[in-house]
């Protein structure tokens, strides 16, 4: 009995380790929870910068320029108000805004993606679109 209370016995040592382990786990879980909370606060910002959204957004570049900085002839999305963006995309999606091509893009995206894209483009800096200058064909490479 007495010996047991000194905790030199194997089983007791194990219990002690186990407790320590639980304390560690609890601490890290609570850390994770706090981290999670901060994450959620800024989630829309971080989520719109994920590889998923940056790649989807960049596939709009063929018509709207790098990071939404379009050349003349198409809408500039860089710095666009996020609410305006979302409203337009949802209108393309449900057909209430007539379009030549955007309905075919908007209908393929879900509302979450549209919200994240709205945030992504609203955060892009507006810069002037640069056009490469065309030149005389000289290269011989087309065989």
């Amino acid at each position: 009995m007495k010996n047991d209370s000194f905790c030199f016995k194997d089983s007791c040592f194990k219990n002690w380790l186990l407790t320590l382990f639980f304390i560690l786990v609890l601490t890290s879980v609570s850390f994770a929870i706090t981290a999670k909370a901060t994450e959620v606060l800024s989630s829309i910002n971080t989520l719109s910068n994920t590889p998923h959204i940056r790649t989807l957004a960049a596939s709009c570049a063929a018509c709207h320029g790098t990071n939404g900085n379009a050349a003349a002839g198409n809408a500039v999305l860089a710095g666009m108000n996020a609410n305006y963006f979302t409203t337009q995309m949802l209108a393309f999606k449900d057909g209430s805004r007539p379009a030549t091509v955007m309905h075919h893009h908007a209908k393929g995206l879900n509302v979450d993606e549209i919200n994240l894209l709205a945030n992504y483009f609203s955060q892009q800096k507006r810069v002037a679109n640069v056009a490469p200058t065309s030149q005389q064909l000289k290269a011989n490479h087309d065989n």
């Binding site: 570049a61 050349a71 198409n74 999606k93 030549t100 091509v101 056009a131």
Partner: peptide, 29 residues
């Protein structure tokens, strides 16, 4: 391919202009 894609309803001048804008933007990108 996701649902919702498709083709133009007919050839138009305005899509001719947008196709030029597509080229300008993809070349710039």
């Amino acid at each position: 391919a996701a649902d919702g894609g498709g083709v133009s309803s007919s050839p138009t001048d305005i899509e001719g202009d947008y196709a030029k804008a597509w080229a300008a933007n993809i070349w710039s990108d």
